[in-house]
């Protein structure tokens, strides 16, 4: 599957994902300004910051979804295992860097089962679909709830179930990096807890970048946190340090709830 990106030699010192001087625009709106940071393999990076500060735009640059918006462009480098993602076919890149969106976006014409394996089936990848359906739905804690109605339409599920289905769908193509843009913002507390639990499990295997509005959530699930403000990376460090001993005034104000 990853013809363009053959497996590079493992380099433990190098971050899985490395962003260098990234700028992104929508027409004249400069949404992401000169951001550099690295994400270690099998770790969770949380991105926090007030609405409109460029969090979504930033993560959408990582799998090259940003460039699909008319009038959008970006500059700078994003390295995946040391390879510039802008030098490879975005189609192959997106199989390695999966994405979960803010609003669940299941395919309404497909059954639950077909949604899970959509990425494989649409790409004509032959695999043991049954096993993948069971494994990913179990991972996302959905299996017991849907195992008796896998052929039912996916839109019959609740919002929280749909979002977990979207995560299962992203996992089925076995990406290396998982980008999650406020995956729990439309969910109730129980569904949110389930997703947090899942992220904790997934980081054994995946590198995860998660955008969140919820600072408690960032503290619970992430190893490192980046604070964005008006398109600029204000501070980036271990989650513990960023929340307890922030170096920058803006960070402190934000994490203590003085603004945002």
């Amino acid at each position: 599957m990853n013809v363009a990106l053959s497996t590079p030699v493992a380099d433990t010192a190098r971050p899985k994902l490395e962003v260098q001087k990234l700028d992104a625009w929508f027409g004249n709106v400069h949404a992401v300004k000169d951001i550099s940071l690295g994400v270690d393999a099998r770790s969770v990076l949380a991105i926090i910051g007030p609405s409109g500060c460029g969090k979504s735009t930033f993560v959408r640059c990582l799998n090259r979804m940003h460039e699909l918006t008319p009038g959008a462009r970006s500059e700078g480098r994003v390295l995946l295992d040391g390879e510039d993602v802008y030098a490879v076919d975005p189609v192959y890149l997106r199989r390695r860097v999966g994405m979960v969106f803010q609003r669940p976006n299941v395919f309404p014409t497909m059954s639950i089962r077909d949604n899970v394996v959509a990425g494989l089936r649409l790409n004509r990848v032959r695999a043991d679909y049954e096993a993948i359906v069971e494994r990913t739905l179990t991972q996302t804690a959905l299996w017991d709830e849907v195992k008796d109605r896998l052929d039912a339409s996916a839109i019959a599920l609740s919002g929280g179930q749909q979002q977990r289905l979207c995560i299962a769908r992203a996992l089925a193509v076995e990406p290396e990096v998982l980008l999650m843009d406020e995956p729990a913002s439309a969910l109730d507390p129980i569904a949110t807890a389930k997703i947090e639990e899942l992220i904790d499990e997934l980081k054994q295997q995946y590198t995860i970048v998660i955008v969140t509005h919820n600072m408690q959530q960032a503290i619970r699930i992430s190893d490192k946190t980046a604070f964005f403000y008006m398109g600029v990376l204000i501070e980036h460090g271990t989650t513990q340090q960023l929340f307890t001993r922030p170096e920058r005034r803006e960070t402190e104000d934000y994490v203590t709830g003085k603004f945002g």
Binding site: N63, M65, L68, V91, Y92, L93, R94, R95, R96, G98, M99, F101, R103, N105, V106, F107, P108, T109, A118, G119, L122, N123, C166, R169, A170, V173
Partner: peptide, 29 residues
């Protein structure tokens, strides 16, 4: 057909032309 469905498919690494046929057209069928 909502843009989010097209994005869901593209984000899975499905090429644009197949996304148009198998997801967008299929939904509009």
């Amino acid at each position: 057909v909502p843009r989010s469905l097209r994005e869901a498919s593209l984000a899975l690494g499905v090429p644009a032309w197949r996304t148009s046929l198998s997801v967008v057209l299929r939904t509009a069928l």
